[in-house]
Design a protein around this nucleic acid. Structure first.
Length: 502
RNA sequence: GGUGCCGUGGCCAAGUGGUAAGGCGGAGGCCUGCAAAGCCUCUAUUCCCCGGUUCGAAUCCGGGCGGCACCUCCA
């Protein structure tokens, strides 16, 4: 049974699906007014892992992730570019899908758009007005926060403080400064839809209430999003929804992922310190992003570290991603060694998976430990630390069977070979044949350093000849020569191999 | 001003009552013609500080200090 931390009750709670065996998840999606950056990947990755874990646990997950394609920022940006707002939003939505595909994030079951939900939104607003929870005023419609006493339960805010803080937008048409717009009357030249209150468009929060209830029903299991959305967005979603459908309806569990910081600073458009996914994906393996994110628990902030040049400003490297990719390299290298051992030992597939008692204890409970970590609020950091321990044990046994009975060693290695791909594969890691990853990575590094692989191979052949004739001076000279290029030569039982150090 | 989160070794980071995971870095070692990779050992008597609860606290409570986030567009 999986437990998740619930922002509303501030504690971990076991997931008890409303419909046994099925889990409905709503994730707040992007406002599509420009390209996706690293920050967008975090909630997507979090929900992707949640969804994969639930599915692996035998549950059917329905993930609804919206596109907000009608919004002030889109209108503004479209005006700047002289482009039609709808066309601009559609263009960036296509790009967004491609970016998430490139990170191997499973597509949501349903991707509703505001532009396709307008009738549902208008209906929703009409019901709120009929229930006395909202009022039309000056072409707009506002939610009456006073009509919903529990307001503030998610974020710990109270209405009086909000008003006293004077940070809420006072507005002639509002009865109370804390009220928020459900419908915004259109100004000249703005895109609009006809409504009982005149032409206009939905306010920011109502879309999610409407889309969630339309696709998942008035009550569903999990609502996700970034920590920055707790207030006001999610608070307002709760108000709108529960004002109509009552306490306890809407999301049963609220999960919020931590944000991404850049060299310790908040990542913000205004600071300009964000990086587009499309560019980073060219430079790193897609699994590198996944590992980078999953190495930290989803509720913590992640620091996206950059290596800066001497001027302290120019970005010369992506330290966090480099580190994650090296770790991934270690994992895949270990798996390859295990595969080679299995091939030479004649171990086929998983068929030698032995009972727990017949393998070393560190290996016998590895899978259970990883599963327990995942069930405990998706502790991927713990699960991957466990996997790392398993990798280390595998390498040790592969190096030497000293002190371990031969059959126990073999069964342990077989077990590790299976389990080290078990939970990690569910998380979308270590899913490929090791050689695919390792070759692709080396090719990328070769290209990045502007090296010539064929030339390296030729020098390696020269060195091999030198070693055969015991000319270690020449052999070492060639090693040094390649080393200067960033190429490391590794002598092995089947000849020398090489890799690019970064 | 309000609200919430956090403060773990040089750095990163798990751990929410039972006596400090893991990674990086560093030191030593095994292996190697030399290396690299891999492995082994060491690297926090202690979890921001001060009180309290408890047989027992990094974990709970109170106070203080520090950082961050949200309250305005932000994933």
């Amino acid at each position: 049974m999986i437990a998740l931390y619930d922002t509303l009750t501030k504690r971990k709670a076991p997931l008890r699906p409303l419909v046994p065996g099925q889990v409905g998840i709503y994730l707040c999606g992007p406002t599509v007014y420009n390209s996706a950056h690293v920050g967008h990947a975090r909630p997507e990755m979090t929900i992707d892992v949640l969804r994969r874990w639930l599915e692996a646990s035998g549950l059917k997950a329905t993930v609804v992730r919206n596109f907000t394609d009608v919004e002030d920022k889109i209108i503004k940006r479209a005006a700047e570019l002289g482009e039609d707002p709808a066309a601009l939003a559609a263009r960036y939505a296509v790009e967004y899908v491609a970016d998430m595909d490139s990170l191997d994030i499973k597509r949501p079951s349903i991707e509703p758009r505001v532009s396709e939900t307008i009738p549902g939104i208008i209906d929703y607003i009409e019901r709120l007005i009929a229930a006395g929870k909202a009022y039309a005023s000056g072409g707009d419609v506002y939610f009456a926060v006073d009509s919903f006493p529990p307001y503030g339960q998610l974020s710990g805010q109270n209405v009086a403080d909000l008003i006293a803080g004077a940070r809420v937008d006072a507005n002639e048409d509002k009865r109370s400064p804390a009220d928020f717009a459900l419908w915004k009357g259109a100004k000249a030249g703005e895109p609009s839809w006809p409504s009982p209150w005149g032409p206009g468009r939905p306010g920011w929060h109502i879309e999610c209430s409407a889309m969630a209830s339309q696709h998942l029903g008035p009550s569903f299991d999990i609502h996700g999003g970034g920590l920055d959305l707790v207030f006001p967005h999610h608070e307002n979603e709760i108000a709108q929804s529960q004002a109509l459908t009552g306490a306890g309806s809407f999301a049963q569990l609220w999960t919020h992922n931590g944000l991404i910081k850049v060299n310790g600073e908040k990542m913000a458009k205004s600071l300009g310190n964000f990086f587009l996914l499309g560019e980073l994906v060219k430079r790193f393996d897609r699994e590198t992003f996944r590992l980078f994110m999953l190495l930290t628990h989803y509720r913590s902030h992640i620091n996206f570290e950059l290596a800066l040049g001497d001027d302290g400003k120019s970005v010369v490297g992506f330290t966090s991603l480099d580190d994650a990719e090296k770790r991934l390299d270690y994992f895949y290298t270990t798996l390859e060694r295990l595969d080679q051992w299995a091939a030479s030992a004649g171990v086929a597939g998983d068929d030698v998976a032995a009972p727990a008692s017949d393998v070393l204890p560190e290996a016998s409970d590895l899978d259970a430990r990883m599963r327990a970590a995942m069930d405990d609020d998706l502790n991927t950091a713990q699960a991957l630390a466990d996997a790392g321990e398993g990798m280390k044990l595998a390498n040790r046994l592969l190096d030497s069977g000293k002190g371990v009975a031969k059959d126990v060693r073999a069964r342990t290695l077989a077990r590790l070979r299976k389990d080290l791909r078990g939970v990690p594969c569910v998380l979308g890691l270590l899913t490929r044949p090791p050689r695919d990853f390792l070759d692709a990575r080396r090719a990328r590094l070769v290209a990045r350093r502007g090296l010539d692989a064929a030339a390296i191979e030729r020098r390696l052949a020269d060195r091999d000849a030198a070693r055969k004739s015991k000319d270690f001076k020449l052999s070492d000279d060639i090693r040094a020569e390649l080393k200067a290029l960033g190429v490391e030569v590794m002598d092995g039982p089947t000849g020398a191999t090489w890799r690019v150090v970064d």
